[in-house]
Nucleic acid binder design. Structure first.
Lengths: 334, 334
DNA sequence: ATGAAAGCGCTAACAC
DNA sequence: GTGTTAGCGCTTTCAT
């Protein structure tokens, strides 16, 4: 008989059973189904386990039950200030359900999202995909194997939490119109981002309704530098105001305008989105509220419920936004 | 014999073995030790596995090998811009070693760090603790069970990566002295943070050496609001310059000063630390470089090596810092 | 209320 | 080079 030095996770359920003079089944039940045991048995077993420093082997548990006690959260970029608050709330909700959270940063790439999903899939009970760039097909495939909750992405039949920026966006356009602007620019984000598509169409529609012209300028990956570099295009477009895909880009634009001695809001109006940094800049930026923290809680809640009830109806939530007017929007120049 | 509906992870190694007409051991080897098999066997097995959509059950693997293929990273606050770049680099290094990363946000609390560590411990091969607030004893306890790498924390016998801010801090004090400042303030961070202790003593020492007075003002959790609120204490202290624990606090101070119409750098000099936001503010802040991304890579590297070699010598790295002079430091007023 | 025992899917001795 | 087989530590059915 083989006697290889087996990997030992230290104290096992057998050790506790022996020390407490009960069967392993009893030890197991003391933790997972204490109501099946006499209270004194439970106490005794737990005391012994405590004394021995017993911790259940998660792998064995998972192998036996088929449940891992883990979920995965995938984000396009943790360094984007939109996500950390969401990461935090997802974690705290997950912790309440005794779930540990894997975090994957996809670096704004659909390909890397797929890789991460594949890597996590064999050891998680479910996924939260924040602003995923994955195709609907791949999301369906994934959802076919594990419960999936989406944030800021709408795919048929998949539970999701949407932060609907169109309300705030529209208010923003109206606000700019009232200030006398006639020609504005939208600094667009990643094309495969649902948020960008939504914002793009909201602003286009609102501008048309208000009889304003809108020039769309692509900046690609939403970053400070991308925003700063976009200023020349902004100037070339002859716009007197701009709405940026998010606050990060907006902050870059702010710096770029300053560099060219274009005063905000005197010579130019600027509006961000998500309200992640807007309150912290100088001057403070007008932005569209977002509440990504709340979205995180909601998403985690949905997932936890799916896990507990076993694939309930796909719930679909939408949270509204509004414009937060600060110092970067003012009357049109001239 | 029991016939409960066993949790099935779909296609198992047995299915592949049957379909490929080999033993399960061969299938296992085709993936983990292909060099032991005839190339054609490997190809055949892999092809069949592919066709069947086989994915190894991680729990079974872990149970059998005692290795999980996961590591945990614990940070005090993901929303603090110092950490996301580190999280990203840790992840990318971990991915190269085929390790998945659990992320825990401890919310600046030692207690929560301990909880997270306990939660992750039974299913990870090692830990990266970033700026942990845990006591040395608890860190030793943890390191006793699993390999641990520390970032910005020095505990005897534990591998770690330190970003030594004292160099940059000292340069900063000299810089302020040269500008004519005589009385400065240090806006201190969390007392249980190694970084804060180090910065605190570096500035105290440097100021003493330069014959300057330094008032230490505690702000507690390093946040924008904490920084902004600290401005009154700053004014009361009669300092003409301040060094903040980090850029987040510094950014808050900047806003607080602006609110009181104290012009920077004309009336007051301000210096941040870590250079996370400094380049993005208006005016751009003088700060101490930090390279948290590099620290993350180094830490992950250390951990991966420990995992591969099996507890090598505890390596201990220190990365130096320097002052990055920008617009918020100028001649002393008056 | 508790115990006995099968088996979750995989890996690694060992035999051939 | 490949097969056989004994577990890894846990949960759960079934029996008592």
């Amino acid at each position: 008989m083989p006697t290889r030095p087996r990997p030992s996770s230290g104290v096992t359920i057998g050790d506790v059973a022996a020390a407490a003079d009960v069967s392993r089944a009893t030890v197991s039940r003391a933790f997972s189904r204490p109501e099946l045991l006499r209270p004194e048995t439970v106490d005794h077993v737990k005391a012994v386990a405590e004394r021995l420093g017993y911790t259940a082997n998660r792998a064995a548990q998972a192998l036996s039950t088929g449940r891992f006690g883990n979920i995965a959260m995938v984000v396009p970029d943790v360094a984007n200030p939109f996500f950390p608050p969401m990461v935090r709330t997802v974690q705290s909700r997950a912790e309440q359900a005794d779930l540990a959270v894997f975090l994957g940063d996809a670096d704004e790439s659909a390909e890397r999202e797929a890789k991460l999903a594949a890597r996590f899939s064999p050891q998680v009970d479910g996924f939260i995909l924040a602003s995923p760039r994955l195709s609907a097909e791949r999301i369906w495939e994934l959802a076919d194997k594990r419960p999936v909750v989406l944030v800021n992405r709408d795919v048929e039949g998949i539970p999701r939490v949407l932060i609907d920026s169109s309300g705030g966006m529209t208010e923003g356009v109206v606000h700019l119109k009232r200030l006398g602007h006639r020609r504005i620019a939208y600094l667009a984000g990643p094309r495969d981002s649902w948020s960008d598509q939504q914002r793009r169409s909201a602003i286009t529609r609102a501008a048309a309704a208000a009889g304003m012209e809108v020039e769309v300028i692509e900046v690609g990956r939403p970053s400070y530098t991308a925003g700063r570099s976009a200023v020349s295009a902004l100037v070339a477009a002859g716009a007197t105001a701009a709405v940026a895909f998010d606050d990060v880009v907006s902050q870059g634009v702010l710096a770029g305008l300053e560099l060219r001695d274009i005063a905000v809001p005197r010579d130019f109006s600027l509006m961000g989105c998500d309200d992640t940094l807007a309150a912290l800049t100088t001057p403070a930026m007008t932005s569209v509220s977002a509440a990504s923290a709340a979205a995180g809680t909601a998403a985690a809640d949905l997932l936890v419920r799916m896990l507990e009830t076993g694939r309930a109806e796909p719930e679909r939530l939408t949270v509204a936004t509004h414009l937060v007017v600060r110092a970067t929007t003012g009357p049109a120049a001239g």
